[in-house]
Structure formats: structure tokens, C-alpha cells
């Protein structure tokens, strides 16, 4: 195995560059080094002006999402040896405006996420004296898969619908809406449905499935969206056919 691998990094410094360009760095090729390790090596040893986000280095925080060789990946979970002998291209996440180098502007996602109210909503809160909300293992299992989302936004970078129509609420937000709808403690499904039944909600999705393919936590946002479509359709038919008392 070669001692080094070439990493081609997308650079954009708004104070200097008129448009994004590429810069090449040769970094040590070690079996235990990830793309994030390579970027940190560049930042610490070669070029301190390189900008990128990262935090936990263990696939939990969701900060270090980047397009590696054209594919949205968590750079802390993507090993350099998978791309040997190289070169390996590292770009900012697609479908987001670039702030600087590999840092993207996530304001759009942060604005959309609270729209689907991803928290437990109760018609009436129990008092602390009434004790905790108990849940059976089966009730936990119903939503657990969707609760694994770490908001890394790889699904947004992979979603061609979001790329074409930035108004689309997007995969992670809908998966999180489904996570709370399926939670036995939650009573806010109707409020979320009113948001997601709109044109930019679930019916904007054309079920390409890339979101599920790239999800590092195996959340299956495409599955969540399909479930939500069916739920919204069932509720719409009920609202259309049944008297109010039977809905």
C-alpha cells in the first residue's frame, strides 16, 4: 500500500475567490485514518486556512457531512483506504449554499425542522406527581428506528427533489415527524399532518430513495415519507367521507 494519498479539496474563500476551486494535498495513507483525519492533518500541519465542521469523530454529532467522491458521507466514518490509491475528492454537501470551503449554510434546514414540531406534544400535560409516561418495549420499537436521526443532512444532499425544489420540507424533517407521530406519548399527529399535507410536504417526494441509501444511521427516511403519504391519504378520505364524530 502507498504511503500517501492525494486529497482534492473544494476551496472557496469568499474574501479571496470569485468562485469555488480545487486544492490538492498529499496526506499519509494510514489504515485507521478517515477523511476527517486527513482534513485535520491538513488543517494542523499544512494549511490552517482550510475550513470544515466537525465535532465528535464518532458518527454521533452529524457535523462532518461532506460529499466524498461525489457521495454524501460522514467524513469521520469514511476511511481513506477505501479510496486508495486515490485521489479522493472532498466537497461541501450538495444542495446547500457554501459559506466557506467545506462549510455549508444550514439555515434552511434549521428553519424547516421546527415546522414539523419534532417534540412530544400533549393535549394536557400530566403533573410530575402523576409519574412518568410509561412505554412498553413494543411501543419503543415502533419509533426507535426513526429516532436514530442525527440531523447530519446527508439525506438533503442526496435528495434530487430538494435539489430541484428547495421548498420541499425534506427527508430528515419528515422522518422526525414520523418518529414523534409513532411515539405512544405523543398527541400531536394532527398538527404535523396539517404541515406535511401541504404542497411542499410529503407529496413533493417522488420516492427516489437516495435519502435512505446514504443515511449513515439506517433511518429510512424514504420509508417514513411513504408511511406519511398513506397516513395523510387515509385521514383525508376519512375527513371527506365520515361525519365529524366518526373521524
Amino acid at each position: 500500500m502507498a504511503d500517501e494519498i492525494r486529497v482534492e479539496v473544494a476551496r472557496y474563500r469568499p474574501d479571496k475567490d470569485r468562485e469555488p476551486g480545487w486544492q490538492e494535498y498529499d496526506v499519509p495513507l494510514r489504515t485507521d485514518w478517515t477523511v476527517l483525519d486527513a482534513l485535520n492533518h491538513v488543517k494542523n500541519e499544512v494549511d490552517s486556512t482550510l475550513a470544515f465542521r466537525w465535532s465528535c469523530r464518532m458518527g454521533i454529532c452529524g457535523s462532518c457531512g461532506m460529499n466524498v467522491q461525489g457521495e454524501p458521507r460522514l467524513s469521520c466514518a469514511t476511511f481513506l483506504t477505501d479510496y486508495a490509491p486515490g485521489p479522493v475528492r472532498v466537497e461541501p454537501l450538495a444542495n446547500f449554499p457554501v459559506v466557506r470551503d467545506l462549510v455549508v449554510d444550514i439555515d434552511d434546514f434549521l428553519e424547516k425542522l421546527p415546522r414539523v414540531k419534532p417534540w412530544i406534544i400533549r393535549d394536557e400535560e400530566k403533573s410530575v406527581d402523576d409519574g412518568e409516561y410509561l412505554q412498553s418495549p413494543e411501543e419503543l420499537e415502533a419509533y426507535q428506528q426513526f429516532s436514530m436521526c442525527i440531523n447530519c443532512m446527508l439525506c438533503y444532499a442526496a435528495c434530487p427533489v430538494y435539489g430541484l425544489d428547495p421548498d420541499f420540507v425534506g427527508p430528515a424533517a419528515i422522518a422526525l415527524a414520523e418518529r414523534y407521530d409513532l411515539d405512544s406519548r405523543d398527541q400531536g399527529a394532527r398538527q404535523r399532518l396539517d404541515v406535511l399535507i401541504e404542497a411542499e410536504g410529503v407529496y413533493g417526494c417522488t420516492f427516489v430513495g437516495e435519502c435512505t441509501r446514504v443515511c449513515p444511521k439506517h433511518v429510512d427516511p424514504a420509508g417514513a415519507i411513504q408511511r406519511y403519504k398513506l397516513k395523510a391519504a387515509q385521514e383525508s378520505v376519512k375527513a371527506f367521507l365520515l361525519p365529524r364524530a366518526f373521524r
Binding site: E198, A199, A233
Partner: peptide, 15 residues
């Protein structure tokens, strides 16, 4: 609940 045509079109599409 808001009335939207999309769920009905999607049901027919799905079926």
C-alpha cells in the same frame, strides 16, 4: 383538517 387534492391523486396513483 385542511382539504387537499394531492392525497386523493396519490391514492389513485398508488392503487
Amino acid at each position: 383538517m385542511k382539504f387537499r387534492i394531492e392525497p386523493f391523486v396519490w391514492l389513485a396513483f398508488s392503487g
